[in-house]
């Protein structure tokens, strides 16, 4: 790890201008991934702008019922927040399915979004990786890639995004709020992370110097239910092999709203638009779920050793859709 300057920002403005005034700056949130990557040499910032003490650490209800989650809200606090638990259970469940209690106590909402792939070739400086070093090649494509992408990958990169939280935010139609040198803007969570294409070094749509200040979730209207499910190699404290977040509302016995996103299948949380379209207006039957999910996963292009992800994702999605509809139809809370 190279030496670096350290600046503690007291305001968003201070943070963005400190960033702008230094080359090689990085924002430091909970550090759970950034410090890890700095130790590996994958990240080598010249300066860290510590944003953990910015007043962005609350969850607040906005007029009209939307929910704003400050970027510095720690993952454990986010998952425990009563409004999150009761209105957006998929988000609470997703956060709690990730990492460990210690890591969730440190990791922030903004940092969770910006965490980087756990692809072993990305983490190892001695191996080629187009994400880490554009043009160097991809060690994973013909290498060990059981954990890698089956959707939306490119010749340049087959990495997956590791976040559980971001999958729920995507299905919940969250928006990511950003402040940068050119002012504030927001991006749909579903569009925040990119597909790798020929620029895998770009994980997200964030622009240089921009700081994630928060995430806004639309109002959870009556009857909206949601859930998250993840499959992993051990019972806890492991990244997903595949995961799914489902947001559902039944109206007059048919599906009136469906939000569906997969985790660990692609370079970004995979919003399953085709499946959602197929579900909309359909009666909530297992056959309808299977049909919709199969439509989505027809686009999958498994690699040599990760074809299992397709049926795994299918099973997870059908299972969560079934559970949510069963709960809704029997009047139980999800």
């Amino acid at each position: 790890m190279k030496e670096f300057a350290y600046v503690r920002a007291g305001s968003v403005e201070e943070a963005t201008s400190a960033y702008a005034s230094r080359t090689g700056a990085r924002y430091l949130g909970g550090g759970t991934n950034l410090v890890d990557l700095m130790k590996l040499g994958v990240e080598a910032p010249a300066a860290l702008i510590d944003v953990t003490r910015l007043p962005l650490d609350s969850v607040e209800e906005l007029p009209g019922g939307a929910l704003r989650i400050g970027a510095m809200v720690r993952n454990s606090d986010l998952a425990a927040h009563p409004l999150v638990r009761h209105r957006y259970p998929a988000l609470s469940q997703a956060v709690l399915a990730g990492a460990s209690g210690q890591l969730r106590n440190a990791a922030t909402t903004g940092g969770n979004l910006l965490q980087r792939t756990r692809c072993p070739y990305f983490q190892d400086l001695s191996k080629p990786c187009n994400k880490r070093e554009p043009g160097s090649g991809c060690g994973a494509r013909d290498g060990v890639h059981r954990d890698h992408a089956v959707l939306g990958h490119s010749a340049h990169c087959i990495a997956t995004h590791p976040s559980d939280m971001a999958v729920a935010l995507t299905a919940l139609d969250g928006r990511v709020e950003l402040v940068g040198p050119e002012g504030a803007r927001s991006v749909a969570a579903a569009d925040f992370h990119r597909l790798p294409g020929d620029r895998p070094e770009q994980d997200t749509e964030i622009r240089p110097g921009e700081l994630v200040t928060g995430v806004v979730l639309p109002a959870a209207t009556a009857g909206l239910s949601s859930a998250y499910r993840k499959a992993r190699d051990r019972a806890s404290y492991a990244f997903a092999l595949a995961s799914v977040a489902v947001v559902l509302r039944l109206e007059d016995g048919v599906i009136g709203h469906a939000g569906l996103a997969f985790g660990a299948l692609a370079h970004r949380p995979w919003r399953a638009r085709r499946a959602e379209e197929a579900l909309l207006g359909a009666a909530p039957t297992r056959a309808a779920f299977e049909h919709a999910v199969d439509l989505e996963l027809a686009a999958a292009q498994p690699l040599r050793d990760n074809a299992y992800k397709v049926p795994l994702a299918r099973n997870l999605a059908v299972d969560v859709l079934s559970r949510l509809t069963d709960a809704a139809l029997t009047g139980r809370a999800s």
């Binding site: 990760n306 049926p311 795994l312």
Partner: peptide
């Protein structure tokens, strides 16, 4: 006996 192997076997 990780999920990938078991699920594939089940299928």
């Amino acid at each position: 006996l990780t999920p990938d192997r078991v699920l594939t076997g089940l299928l």
